[in-house]
Amino acid sequence: MGKEYLRGWDIACPTLKKVQIYFMPTKPQLSRPPLERMLKIHAALRRGELINSSQLVAELEVTRKTIGRDIAFMRDRLDLPIEYDAKRAVYRYTHQVEAFPTVNVTEGELLALLVAQRALEQYRGTPFHRQLEIAFGKLSDGLRDRISFSPADEIRTVSFKNIGLGKTDLAIFNPLSAAVLHHNEVTFSYRKPGSSQATQRRVHPYHLAHRENLWYLVGFDVEREALRTFALPRILKVKATAEKFVRPPDFSPETFFANALGVLGGSGNHKIVIRFTAAAAERVREREWHESQEMRELRSGGLELTLRLGALEEAKQWILGWGAAAEVVGPASLRENMRKTVETLVERYTK
């Protein structure tokens, strides 16, 4: 795969493996794309038509050399049984071909792709959603004559639902994603949580990440001389400048978010210990909360969870969500913060 594909959308997305696809150049073309030409040639040959170069040149609006290269690729690289009949000056298939071999996946792999497509529905509206939707369509169409189940029926057995899914404004997302891809500095107004006033920012955009059901931009704030995380719903008036930047070679989103429970990391190194009641323990065991997590079973049937995080505030909010089923053992500063918060809640609910 060429470098232009490796430099694609710099976003946090899973990598699909074991799918063999013949990628065509992304440069603008005046003629039909090569894959489209070959599919048309395949369709004609599959119908049993005897076609010659003159017909293909007229129909596909390309030169004879281009037709020759396409047919050579289909015969030599895709192993399609194309034969040239010199007496009649026509091409034909020597035997029946069921499907154009652009993909090679099993039924299980196709079903996994379709499940992934269903999961993408919750991100509808972002630019890559439509591109992936088209790609999934091509994959399933390519296997239409080679599968023994109905993807449409199977996919109805799977659904996805996230609470609090963030809204995506394409007027914000599009220029930011382009700036990340092309390494252009951007300016925008940004409003911090709880603030009614927005401030102007100059940022080198490094990465777009979808975490905790919300899109975030990770970038270097030029005036503050530090890496910052910006929630897209709080970004206004994005403008890409002509100023280029070089992303540090040692930057990686995995490292940046390594000590964050969700989004907010930090420079600290906090060992957070939480005890869960027996009623909540099963739900805690069932999930992977963080790479650093350690679990210890308690005699009471409860569970002790240990996390190593860079900041405490995000952990505090998560622990509060468990209510009385969770108790902070340490650090002492977090336990004291939780105690004060509980006192405030008691006062609020006893008025």
Rank of each mutant, 00 (worst) to 15 (best):
M1Q: 14
G2P: 09
G8F: 10
W9L: 08
A12P: 00
P14W: 11
L16W: 07
K17I: 08
K17R: 09
K18C: 03
V19G: 07
I21M: 07
M24I: 06
T26I: 13
L30Y: 05
P33H: 08
L39A: 03
R47I: 00
R47C: 06
E49P: 02
L50M: 13
S54R: 15
Q55Y: 14
V57F: 03
R64M: 07
K65G: 05
I71A: 08
I82S: 04
E83N: 11
Y84E: 02
D85W: 08
K87S: 12
A89T: 09
Y93Q: 11
A99K: 10
F100W: 14
V103E: 03
E109P: 01
L110F: 13
L111V: 10
A116W: 13
A116Q: 11
Q117S: 13
R118C: 00
Y123A: 06
G125S: 11
G125W: 07
F128R: 07
H129Y: 15
E133K: 11
L139N: 03
L143K: 10
D145C: 09
S148N: 15
S148M: 08
F149K: 12
D153M: 07
E154S: 12
V158W: 07
F160Q: 08
K167P: 00
L170R: 12
I172G: 00
I172S: 02
I172K: 03
E185N: 10
V186Q: 01
V186E: 05
Y190Q: 12
T199V: 14
V203S: 02
H204G: 00
P205E: 12
R211S: 01
W215I: 03
V218I: 15
G219L: 03
L227E: 13
R228W: 06
A231Y: 00
R234E: 01
L236F: 08
K237W: 01
K239G: 04
K244S: 14
K244V: 11
R247P: 01
P249V: 15
E254A: 14
F256D: 01
L264Q: 10
G266W: 05
G266R: 06
S267Y: 07
H270L: 12
F276I: 11
A279W: 02
E282F: 04
R283H: 10
E286S: 15
E288L: 13
Q293S: 07
E294K: 15
R296P: 01
R299W: 04
S300E: 15
L305C: 09
T306E: 15
A311C: 09
E313P: 02
E314C: 11
E314D: 14
L320W: 01
G321M: 13
G323V: 02
A324R: 14
A324K: 14
A326P: 00
V328H: 02
P331T: 12
P331Y: 03
A332E: 10
L334K: 00
N337E: 08
V342N: 00
E343P: 00
T344I: 00
Y349P: 01
